[in-house]
Design a protein around this nucleic acid. Structure first.
Lengths: 226, 226
DNA sequence: CCTTTTCTCGTCACCTTGACGATAATCGTC
DNA sequence: GACGATTATCGTCAAGGTGACGAGAAAAGG
């Protein structure tokens, strides 16, 4: 039995909240095809490597990060016959949510890598589509899981968490209602006992990410229509 | 630049509601590896074929069905290095939701294909895991989308729709509250004007699947805990 | 005609949410 | 040190959704 031969890559939709907006990590391609075009970071899966392992390796290579912070999950796979002019390539896209930590793209290779506001189009291959799918997944995940905390440092305030929601969803949220929701939904966030110092206004209590995997009840964004 | 060589397959988690319970289409393997073991139906992606096209082709081959009824979506990809002893194979799993139509597995090839209650384990490869992921996806989809109608024939009653929910979720639902929810959520179901005849009890109105892609508000199952 | 069955509609208490007022705790300035 | 600005936190209230459950409507069968 013979069967077609494929190459398999992983591509990463790495999202963070910087400067009050949702941004994505993009690299400028240094070789053909799509030379000099912006693209999602990614690379080939090695011969003896699991898909998730390849995704973690690429993420570490591009960002220098690896630790327990943030979140990485499989997004979807894309395998249209003509998506890569070099041949038959199937890519498994992963979605990463990272806090806005100091090391901005201070990794290693990846010609130039930069944080760019989402909404930029004209990416290489079918990466416009993959990015759009990743953003929608992130927006949806914030509704049903406590993963917004993956965008925050280990300890954060309710206001910081709210600003994540506002940046990812692109809509403003009432601070008082959000505070009630965040502090009363079981397993969403846990108080550390500490508080912020030195800022303007009343000091805010600090929280850690809660242990729940699902928000119950969920925190739904406003839907315009069905 | 050289890179590892892969084979790519699609595997299908085909679910239906039969005899009041959730069932999955399984085939008995006719060749090594895992000879005679139950497995999800699937096959290799052809040289010039898109992933979704391959999934639709396999679905048609195994079930004989193809029409507009039902629902097919990508589930996830699985590519552990040792998941197939023949070599490096990445599989893209698809989830199909089908009504319980007459032609039960009356397709073509696929040595023996049968509807089996979900919950059966001991499948070939990593298909236990894929099946579990598919079931969880289906349960979740029923919460946020009108896709339960994909398990029903084109025209159906509210009671039939409720029985789909009960079978997929494995819990009983109050018929009166479900009726209110199904008939008042915009875009969930649309009345055809017709009604059932000849059954026992009061005739039930018939409905078609609504045009909404998302239930708003969603229809959440009971969660034991976060 | 009466019972059984199932569909459909109502009622009521409870909870969650959106809108928004009020208080608390800090900083900067005078 | 008093005062206003700023932000965090807590309360209040009405509207809407949900769970629990009663009751009528419309058929079949004896």
């Amino acid at each position: 039995m013979s069967y077609p031969v494929f190459a398999v890559t992983v591509d990463l939709v790495v999202l963070t909240v910087r400067e009050g907006e949702l941004q994505v990590l993009l690299v400028r391609r240094g070789c053909e095809p799509f030379l000099d075009r912006w693209a999602l970071p990614g690379g080939f899966v090695l011969a003896d490597e699991d898909l998730a392992t390849a995704a973690r390796r690429e993420l570490a290579e591009e960002t220098g990060l690896d630790g327990p912070g943030g979140h990485l999950e499989q997004l979807a796979s894309y395998g249209a016959p003509e998506r890569d002019p070099r041949g038959r390539v199937v890519t498994v896209a992963y979605l990463a949510l990272l806090p806005d930590l100091p090391a901005p793209t201070a990794g290693t290779d990846a010609a130039e890598a930069e944080w760019r506001p989402v909404g930029q189009t004209g990416l290489a291959f079918d990466h416009d589509r993959i990015l759009a799918d990743g953003i929608e997944r992130a927006r949806s995940k914030l509704e049903y899981t406590p993963l917004a905390a993956a965008f925050c440092p280990p300890e954060f305030t309710v206001a910081a968490l709210r600003q994540v929601y506002e940046a990812v969803w692109g809509e403003s949220i009432d601070p008082r209602n959000f505070h009630r929701k965040a502090t009363t939904t079981p397993g969403f966030i846990d108080p550390t006992g500490g508080a912020t110092e030195g800022g303007t206004g009343r000091p805010a209590r600090l929280y850690r990410r809660g242990e729940a995997s699902l928000l119950n009840p969920p925190l739904l964004r406003r839907r315009l229509d069905g």
